[in-house]
Amino acid sequence: MFDDSHLDQITENIVDACIQIHRDLGPGLFESVYEVLLADELERGGHKVERQKELPLTYRGRILEHAFRIDILVDQRVVIEVKATEKSARIHARQLLTYLRILRLPVGLVANFGLDRMIDGINRINNARMVP
C-alpha cells in the first residue's frame, strides 16, 4: 500500500525543511507561525499539503465530526504535529499515533521547533499496526 522509499523521501524533505526554518529563525515563535512556514516550504518543494485538517472519530457507531485537527498532512501520507515547546513530551507522540491509527497511515513526525537544536525536536512515529 505504501512505498517505504517514497515515505522516507517525504519525511527526509520534511526534516530538511524543519531544519532550514529553525536555522533561519530559531526557537521562540508561535506554533502557528512554524506551521505556516513549514507548509509553504513543503508546497514549494512540490508536496501536496493540507493544514488544520479536521479528523472525525467514530466510536461504537457514534461519529464525532470535529474530534481532532491535524496540523499538517503531506501528500496524504505523512502527518506532522508541530510544536514549539521548551521540552518534548511523550503526549505529543501519543497524540500523533492516535491520528495515524485513525487515518490508517504508517508514519508521522512530531516537529518541535522550541528546542535549541531542531534535530533534537524531530521524532518519527511509526504506526505499528501499519508496519508489515
Results as ranks from 00 to 15, higher is better:
Gly26Glu: 07
Ser5Trp: 03
Arg124Gly: 01
Leu7Met: 13
Arg104His: 15
Met1Gly: 14
Ser32Gln: 03
Ala67Arg: 06
Glu54Met: 09
Ile122Ala: 08
Ala67Asp: 02
Leu103Glu: 14
His92Gly: 03
His66Arg: 13
Leu55Gln: 06
Ile72His: 05
Thr98Asn: 09
Ile70Asn: 05
Ala67Trp: 03
Glu43Gly: 04
Gln76Val: 03
Ala39Ile: 05
Gly45Tyr: 02
Tyr34Asp: 04
Gly26Ser: 05
Leu105Gly: 09
Tyr99Asp: 08
Ile14Glu: 00
Asn123Phe: 15
Phe113Arg: 07
Asp16Gly: 02
Asp75Trp: 02
His92Asp: 11
Leu109Phe: 06
Asn126Gly: 15
Leu73Pro: 07
Leu100Glu: 10
Leu29His: 15
Asp16Phe: 03
Val82Met: 14
Leu25Val: 13
Val74His: 10
Lys87Gln: 15
Gln9Glu: 08
Val107Thr: 14
Asp8Cys: 06
Arg77Val: 06
Leu97Thr: 08
Gly114Glu: 01
Asp120Ser: 15
Ile125Thr: 15
Glu31Pro: 12
Asn127Leu: 06
Thr58Phe: 00
Tyr99Arg: 08
Tyr34Phe: 09
Val79Ile: 15
Leu103Trp: 14
Phe30Ala: 08
Met130Asn: 08
Glu50Asp: 13
Met1Asp: 13
Val78Glu: 01
Val107Trp: 10
His66Asn: 12
Gly114Met: 01
Pro132Gln: 13
Arg51Pro: 04
Ile119Tyr: 02
Val131Gly: 03
Gly45Leu: 07
Pro27Tyr: 10
Ile72Gly: 03
Glu65Arg: 12
Asp16Ser: 05
Leu29Thr: 10
Val49Tyr: 02
His92Trp: 11
Pro27Thr: 02
Gly46Leu: 08
Ala84Gln: 05
Ile21Pro: 09
Arg117Ile: 09
Arg60Asn: 12
Leu97Cys: 06
Ile19Asn: 05
Val110Trp: 02
Lys83Gln: 05
Ile63Gln: 11
Arg77Asn: 14
Lys53Pro: 11
Ser32Asn: 03
Thr98Gln: 06
Tyr34His: 07
Met1Val: 07
Met130Leu: 13
Pro106Lys: 12
Asp3Leu: 12
Asn123Arg: 15
Arg44Gln: 12
Ile119Lys: 07
Ser32Leu: 01
Gly28Pro: 01
Asp75Arg: 02
Ser88His: 12
Thr85Lys: 13
Leu97Ala: 07
Val110Leu: 05
Ile63His: 08
His92Tyr: 14
Phe113Leu: 09
Arg77Met: 14
Lys87Met: 15
Arg104Gly: 14
Glu35Pro: 08
Leu42Gly: 01
Asp40Arg: 09
Ile80Thr: 04
Leu97Gly: 06
Glu86Lys: 15
Thr11Val: 10
His92Gln: 07
Leu100Gln: 10
Gly61Ala: 13
Gly46Lys: 09
Tyr99Trp: 10
Arg23Phe: 06
Asp16Glu: 05
His22Ser: 06
Ala111Met: 13
Ala39Cys: 08
Ile14Pro: 00
Gln20Cys: 02
Leu38Arg: 14
His47Ala: 01
Ser5Asp: 12
Val15Arg: 09
Tyr59Val: 06
Pro56Gln: 01
Glu65Tyr: 04
Phe30Lys: 12
Val74Tyr: 10
Asp40Phe: 02
Leu64Gly: 00
Arg62Ile: 13
Arg51Val: 01
Phe68Gln: 01
Leu64Ser: 00
Ile21Val: 13
Cys18Glu: 00
Val33Asn: 02
Ala84His: 04
